[in-house]
Each structure stands twice: as structure tokens, then as C-alpha cells.
Design a binder for these strands. Structure first.
Length: 622
RNA sequence: GCCCCCGUAGCUCAGCUGGAUAGAGCAACGGAUUUCUAAUCCGUUGGUCGGGCGUUCGAAUCGCCCCGGGGGUGCCA
């Protein structure tokens, strides 16, 4: 739990709780309902306790507020209370004393910035990537790792044990088709495995898909409309060819399943090429996903048949039209009409089979008490089916706690273009991720060169890279994840408003103050521990904003919505900008300067820490 | 058909377990710079919170019914 020493809401809640208990002993334990005031002209905090209390006891709300006030002693914390502190139907407004606020900020000024370890850390699996072999990464792939990594970092920051899982799509018939295609090309001497690139694979993947796709509709049309023997023969040839290719692809899949060395070598090469690119992108975007987080579908392949046997034997799975399903009508399993299909009538397994198997491994072997899926919102039904099946099978029951793991979908919407339709290039192709990053870096570089001409080209390059990455990630993470959002290159890279560059700028300005301070001021000045003197309104507002940090991080841990932290950080940066404008730091003197330096330092630490929790890198200067 | 998600200012979006006159940013307009980065700050203009009914002292928030948009829906992943 949170340490009560720095949190004004906790401190006030304690006082209100006892005041309420004295004013209305018959009321029992009543929530003081302390919140930060929305209008700062009325106060810093407010209690909404009087209204529900009055209702419960059948008295007038304002009378209840007056009674609470009568028993409330905040003289050491807040500015004097009076009748005027009661507003509207019974709100009680509180303004903290500057010295109290200073004490709270000093208590908050610890290495962990008010976020202490949980009494019992949880083991949490975050499913956050899911790239597919042989497919070029495009913008559609980016939300999962952005959001998933931010959630993972948040939970780590809160003291939990987080296991990232990159659920790589590296198995199944689609992959076998590509393996077949590459094997054919190698056999024909048109392809060298050594020089294989992801672009090559992307092309091969698409060609392979097409070659296995039987155009039955076309053939039917030829016959129906009598398009002539030639057209019909061509269509027939296509269908025959596709049928043959499809059959061969199935054979390749069998070879892969049997670890046939030649097919497996090609598969391994495809996996290596894809993963190298994927992990390089992660590294460049400061996404904490590395090789050790890979848990591809192929690693579950051998477990599927025994698992399905287990389900069948225990009567959890049943046959239906030749297929094997797990029914989920029971409310305990989600009350889902559509059953979870785990084996096709031809004996093949489906992605649901693998996903059920993944729940089992994550809970039974990894020990997950909570599994979070940072996955496209469209997968919601699929996930609920998988969870229902896993719970029904007992796979979700934690071996130690004996309780079902929490299974949560951190769903996200699509990235749209200006036209409100899914973000595509002018030609209609998906936007390649590497192209998007390059474009962002180029745009950032142009701005940095213009704004900071005094820096070296090497510095420009470094800064542009970081600004671009921050802009991209921030543009995604500042939005409510479940909604679609409109991607705007100009808005993202802008320094105005709630953007990555604006946030980096706030950090860089503070760093700049300390750079100057180191030159112009005795470096031994005791600002890190000097008393805070919060006399200006901007100083108070900044202090109040700082104290909200732990709550903002916890809110993300609970809601799995990183935009809440982003929103908070933007508000903190705004409070700092107002402070920066109104309160000179280096030009002030004595205690004021020391106090302001400490305030700056704290702000910088919170901003940097908060951005790092979101996975956004910061800069010393820009 | 059934299920899920979304609808807040001209645009892009916040709005916490229901709380006061619904907030930011952009755009528009007006100010502030011999200044620690003006890449900023301060102010003005702008909204029947998709519509209705209900619960409540109090609803953008909770419930029900509509309207509009998107998505999913047994043998692809």
C-alpha cells in the first residue's frame, strides 16, 4: 500500500474520517471522499462526504458539512476553515498551507518517488507482440508492443514480476506455404538462403498464399456463363495448380512437424531473418522485447495433441459436426454462445488451441497470476473463448494460490488516416514501419537543425532519433487505447500540445538549468535537501502536481490505460512551464533559489521516470 | 439475427469509484521576449456531452430503449 506520509488525500482522509466519526458516531465508517479540486480558485482539495452522509442520516447536506467542520481540526495542515469553506450542496473546500505542502513534497522526495513495493508482488505475463514470420512489419503491428511494453513497464515499476511474451506466429499451414515456396526457389537456383531478406520473405509469403488459393468462383463463372473452352481450361489449370500447391504445402507442414532437416533448416532461416528485423525495430523504438521473450506458436506444437486428448478424456471437449469444441454457455465460462473450436474435422488444430495451451503454460509453468493481452480489439471474442475454455479445463487455476489467474484484454483500436479509414499509403498498401520511422527521423532532424543550429551534426542525429521515437510512441500512448485514432504526422512531431517533443523539451529545459548551475553556482550547494519555500501560486501548483505521480502510475497498473499517465505527465509539464515562466530559478537568490532548484530536480525526476514507464526515452538537451 | 466497441468545441482528444459553471491541445483572435531554450507562457472566442426515458440531492459518467459508425460471429490466423 501507499505510504501515507506524502499523499495529501490520505492525510486529509484520515482527518475527515475521524471528524465524521465524532460528528456522527452512528454513521459508522463513512468515506471522506477527498478529491483534488477541479477549480483551483476554490481550493486544493475537497471533501464530498457531506451529501451521502446527510442522505444516510436524513439531515440537510449543508448541516452535515457544518457538523463535520465543527469536529475537524486541520489547523496544522490547511488554511483556516469557515462557513465559507462549505459550498454548493455541501462541498468542503480545503486549501493546504504552504509549509504543509512543502513537508509533503519533502516526504515524497525519496528514491522511489512515493511508489513503494507491494506487500506481495504478483507474477504477471504480458502478451505484447505477436509478429508473424515472413511478414514485413507495418504500422498495424506497432500498437501491441507500444501499449504492451508500457503496461509491462508500469507493472514492473509498481514492483511486480513481469514476464513478457512475444507470441510469434511461426507455425501452421501459412508458414509451411512460405517454406515450400522458398524451398522451390532454392531448388530452382533462384534463391540463396544466405542473402534472404524480410522483403524477399514478404513477397514469397504473398506469392505462396496466392499459389495455394483455388479460384473456384472463376471456374464456376466460366461454366455458368460459357466463357469458352480456353478460359475454362485456364481456370481449370489454376485450380489444379493451386490444389497441387496446397497439397504440397500440407506435406511441408508434416515435414516441419516431423523435424525433417531440410524443411526445418529453411524454416529456421525464415525465423532468424524475421526475428532479427523485429528485434532490431524493438531496440530502435526502445521497446523492451528481446529474443528471450519469444514464445512462438511452434513451441506449443508438440503440446497440442496431448492437451486435446486430455480435454477429450475429461469430457471438457466434445465432438460437434466432426470438429472438437469446448462449450462455454455456462456463466462461469463467459456465457458465450459460440463454443471454442479446438480441433478441426480434418484433425488439424487452430490458433485457439495454441492460445488455450499458452494459458496453461503461462499459469501452470510460469506461475502467472495475471495475464494481460495487448492485442487488437477485434480479437475480443476469440480471447474470451480461449479464456473460457482454459478456465473450464482448470488450466487457468494457479498451482499455488488455487485461484484462477486474472485474464485481461488490453484491447486497442485501429490507426486511421486523415480520411478516417485505416492508415494506408496512397497506393493502398500498408505503411511499412521502417519507412514511417525514417520519415519521422527526417522530419525531426529538420526541426532540430533549425531550432538548435549551434549543435553538431552528430548531436542533431542523436536528438532527431530520440525525438522521432518519442513522438511516435507518445502519439499512440496519449490516446485512450480502446479507441481508433487518427494518425497525423504533423501533429505527432509538433512541439505544441500534448506531444512527445513537448515532453522532451520540458525535461531538456530543466537539464539546461542544472548545466548552467553547475558552471555558475557552487556545485556543493545543498539544494537536494534544502527546505521548500512554496510562496508563488505556480510553485504550489507544481508541488501539488508532483504529489499526484504515484497515483497516476497506480491508475495505469489497474486500468491498463497508459494514456492516464501520459495525461498526468502533460499536466505536470504544463505546471512546470508555468512555473518556469513565472519563477526565475538561477536569477533568484538564497533559500528561494535552493528551493526552486530542488523543485526543478524533482520535476525532472518525475518526468523522466514517468516517461521511462511509458517506454519513452528522454534527452539532456535538444 | 446475436454479441462487443465507439459517439464530448470547427479539428484531434481528456474527463478518475456519479459531484460545483464539462476541460486541454490545435485552429482563430489579443497580449508577454534587454529573460534559466518564445520549441514557451498569459488571455479571449467556441459545446442541446448522438437522442430519449429512468435511478439520484446531483448523470458526460449508472440502467433501459432508440439513432449513427466500426468490428466480431463453429472448422484462416
Amino acid at each position: 500500500m501507499s505510504s501515507p506520509t506524502f499523499d495529501p488525500i490520505q492525510v486529509l482522509a484520515d482527518r475527515f474520517r475521524s471528524a465524521i466519526a465524532r460528528a456522527y458516531p452512528e454513521a459508522g465508517d463513512s468515506d471522506p471522499l477527498i478529491t483534488a479540486s477541479r477549480q483551483t480558485n476554490l481550493g486544493d482539495f475537497q471533501s464530498n462526504a457531506a451529501m451521502p452522509l446527510a442522505k444516510k442520516l436524513g439531515v440537510k447536506p449543508r448541516d452535515a458539512a457544518a457538523a463535520i467542520l465543527k469536529h475537524l481540526d486541520l489547523a496544522d495542515l490547511a488554511e483556516p476553515l469557515s462557513e465559507a469553506s462549505i459550498a454548493g450542496p455541501g462541498f468542503i473546500n480545503i486549501r493546504l498551507r504552504a509549509d504543509t505542502l512543502a513537508e509533503l513534497v519533502a516526504a515524497f522526495d525519496t528514491p522511489d518517488l512515493g511508489i513503494d513495493k507491494p506487500a506481495r508482488p504478483q507474477t504477471i505475463v504480458v502478451d505484447l507482440m505477436g509478429v508473424n514470420l515472413a511478414k514485413q512489419m507495418h504500422v498495424g503491428h506497432i500498437r501491441s508492443p507500444f501499449i504492451g511494453d508500457a503496461i509491462a513497464r508500469t507493472l514492473e515499476r509498481l514492483g511486480h514480476t513481469v514476464i513478457r511474451q512475444n507470441h510469434v506466429g511461426d507455425w501452421g499451414l501459412n508458414i509451411a506455404m512460405t517454406v515450400m515456396r522458398i524451398m522451390d526457389e532454392v531448388a530452382a537456383g533462384t534463391r540463396s538462403l544466405d542473402s534472404l531478406t524480410l522483403d524477399d520473405l514478404d513477397t514469397a509469403y504473398r506469392l505462396a498464399q496466392a499459389s495455394c488459393q483455388r479460384d473456384l468462383a472463376g471456374l464456376q463463372a466460366c461454366r455458368t456463363y460459357g466463357l469458352g473452352p480456353k478460359a475454362e481450361a485456364e481456370c481449370q489449370a489454376q485450380v489444379d495448380g493451386a490444389t497441387e500447391a496446397f497439397t504440397r504445402a500440407r506435406q511441408v507442414l508434416v515435414q516441419l512437424q516431423g523435424h525433417e532437416p531440410r524443411a526445418l533448416a529453411v524454416w529456421q532461416r525464415i525465423a532468424d531473418v524475421t526475428m532479427a528485423e523485429c528485434l532490431a525495430v524493438c531496440k530502435r523504438l526502445h521497446i523492451n522485447v528481446t529474443a528471450e521473450h519469444s514464445a512462438g506458436e511452434s513451441t506449443y506444437a508438440a503440446e497440442l495433441a496431448p492437451m486435446v486428448e486430455d480435454l477429450l478424456k475429461r469430457g471438457i471437449a466434445e465432438e460437434s459436426d466432426g470438429a472438437l469444441v469446448v462449450r462455454l454457455d455456462d456463466p462461469r465460462y463467459g456465457a458465450i454462445k459460440e463454443p471454442c473450436l479446438i480441433r478441426k474435422s480434418d484433425g488439424g488444430f487452430l490458433y485457439a488451441t495454441t492460445d488455450v495451451c499458452a494459458v496453461r503454460r503461462r499459469v501452470q509453468k510460469i506461475g502467472a497470476e495475471r495475464i494481460i493481452y495487448a492485442i487488437d480489439a477485434r480479437q475480443n471474442l476469440h480471447l474470451r473463448q480461449v479464456w473460457g475454455a482454459a478456465r473450464r479445463a482448470g488450466y487457468a487455476r494457479h498451482p499455488v494460490t488455487g485461484e484462477d489467474a486474472m485474464l485481461e484484454h488490453a484491447a486497442f483500436g485501429a490507426i486511421l488516416g486523415d480520411d478516417g479509414r485505416p492508415f494506408k499509403t496512397r497506393t493502398g498498401d500498408p505503411v511499412k514501419l521502417s519507412d514511417l520511422i525514417e520519415q519521422a527521423v527526417t522530419a525531426a532532424a529538420a526541426i532540430v537543425r533549425e531550432k538548435s543550429p549551434d549543435l553538431s551534426p552528430a548531436e542533431h542525429a542523436t536528438i532527431a532519433e530520440t525525438v522521432a521515437v518519442a513522438a511516435l510512441k507518445h502519439a499512440d500512448l496519449c490516446q485512450e487505447r480502446v479507441k481508433d485514432y487518427v494518425f497525423s504526422f504533423g501533429r505527432m512531431i509538433s512541439f505544441e500540445g500534448n506531444t512527445g517533443p513537448y515532453m522532451l523539451m520540458a525535461v531538456a529545459r530543466i537539464k539546461n538549468i542544472f548545466r548552467k548551475a553547475a558552471n555558475e553556482i557552487d556545485p556543493d550547494l545543498p539544494w537536494p535537501s534544502s527546505p521548500l519555500d512554496l510562496r508563488e501560486p505556480q510553485e504550489k501548483q507544481l508541488a501539488l502536481a508532483l504529489l499526484r505521480y504515484p497515483g497516476a502510475v497506480r491508475a495505469v497498473g489497474q486500468s491498463l490505460e497508459p494514456h492516464r499517465l501520459s495525461q498526468y505527465l502533460f499536466e505536470l509539464a504544463g505546471a512546470f512551464s508555468s512555473f518556469y515562466d513565472a519563477c526565475p530559478v538561477l536569477k533568484s537568490e538564497g533559500g528561494t533559489r535552493l528551493s526552486r532548484l530542488r523543485l526543478c530536480s524533482l520535476t525532472e525526476r518525475v518526468l523522466t521516470d514517468g516517461l521511462s514507464v511509458l517506454g519513452i526515452p528522454t534527452l539532456e538537451r535538444m
